[in-house]
């Protein structure tokens, strides 16, 4: 298993800068050290953006190759952010070239709620306000993850990228702004809209949440969240 985390200590950072300097001089082995360190982040971002493992592997490989060829253009800062920018650019190039996006129809995502479990959705909305409710326990559920994976692909590209970089990869707002070449305000807006859209889709699928977390057993009245005006 390769290291997956960016440098955490000053010594580690200085060692990383030394490796980057060697890689900039054309040292393939030094560059491979960087690849080992950041390839997981690059691949995960590509995978969650594209929704296809084979394609994500090729796009990540292309990004790594492009990074090696253009490493002299790296002007310092976070190498991870620089590499992720190349990965996201590769994803965007792929979409533009294909003239299509790996989107999932919202109708498919919404169908179960409107046809079969629409009434239960409202009860589950109330379940989400249970103070004892722990979202991390539900997050481990395979069905829920699979749904969020599909719902991600239904987001517009900019929102999806912000959500993936922040919530999946754990980048800060400033780092996301650097990757996407926008400002922090735009990042906040895209992130909020992306998360809210995913939440609204999730709330229409109460079957993904176990009954232990459903609030109807307490006899409370169902409440349907409303968006602020």
């Amino acid at each position: 298993m390769t290291p997956t985390q960016p440098p955490a200590s000053p010594n580690d950072e200085s060692a990383l800068q030394a490796v980057i300097a060697r890689a900039r001089s054309g040292d393939v082995e030094a560059f491979n050290v960087l690849v080992e360190r950041f390839q997981r982040a690059a691949f995960v971002v590509a995978l969650r953006m594209l929704g296809d493992r084979d394609l994500a592997e090729d796009v990540t490989q292309d990004a790594v190759l492009s990074a090696f060829r253009h490493i002299k253009q790296f002007r310092g800062g976070s190498f991870r952010v620089w590499l992720l920018r190349i990965v996201t650019n590769q994803c965007l190039d792929y979409w533009r070239a294909q003239q299509r996006r790996p989107s999932v129809s919202l109708d498919v995502l919404l169908a179960p709620a409107t046809e079969e479990t629409g009434g239960e959705a409202a009860r589950n909305d109330a379940a989400l306000i249970d103070p004892a409710w722990d979202p991390t326990m539900l997050a481990e559920r395979h069905e829920l993850q699979a749904f969020i994976e599909r719902a991600l692909l239904a987001l517009p590209e900019d929102q999806r990228l912000a959500v993936v970089l922040c919530d999946v990869e754990g980048l800060s707002y400033d780092e996301i702004a650097e990757v996407t070449r926008t400002n922090v305000g735009t990042v906040k807006s895209r992130l909020a809209r992306g998360r809210a859209r995913l939440r609204d889709l999730l709330l229409r699928h109460p079957e993904l949440l176990p009954r232990a977390y459903r609030h109807d057993s307490r006899g409370d009245q169902p409440r349907v969240p409303r968006k602020p005006e």
Binding site: P135, V168, P225
Partner: peptide, 19 residues
């Protein structure tokens, strides 16, 4: 209402982190 919306965001974020 806002508590439910906030809880929904927490669930989404927790699931995304698992991804």
């Amino acid at each position: 209402d806002c508590a439910a919306r906030y809880a929904g965001l927490r669930q989404v974020q927790a699931t995304l982190r698992a991804l």
